[in-house]
Amino acid sequence: MKYVSAKVQGRVQGVGFRYFTQHTAMSHDIVGWVKNEDDGAVLIEAYGDDNNIDRFLEEIKRGPSRFAKVSEMDVNKLNGEPEYNSFNVKY
Rank of each mutant, 00 (worst) to 15 (best):
F67Y: 10
F56M: 09
N79H: 14
D38S: 11
P64W: 05
G32Q: 04
S27E: 10
I44K: 00
T24A: 07
N52Y: 10
E72L: 13
I30K: 01
A46E: 07
N76S: 14
D50T: 13
V8H: 02
N36H: 07
D50Q: 10
A68C: 04
A68E: 01
D54I: 14
S27M: 11
N85D: 15
Q13R: 03
F56D: 03
G48T: 12
W33G: 13
V75C: 08
E81Y: 11
Y84W: 15
Q13W: 04
L57D: 08
F17D: 02
D50F: 05
V70I: 11
G10P: 03
G10W: 04
S86Y: 09
M73V: 15
Q13Y: 06
T24N: 06
F67H: 12
F20W: 00
M26W: 03
E81Q: 13
F67E: 00
V31L: 05
T24G: 03
V8E: 01
R62E: 14
Y91A: 09
R66C: 02
D74N: 15
F87T: 06
F20T: 02
K90H: 09
D49C: 08
G48A: 09
R66F: 08
E37T: 10
E58G: 12
I53E: 00
G14D: 10
M1T: 11
H28A: 00
I30N: 02
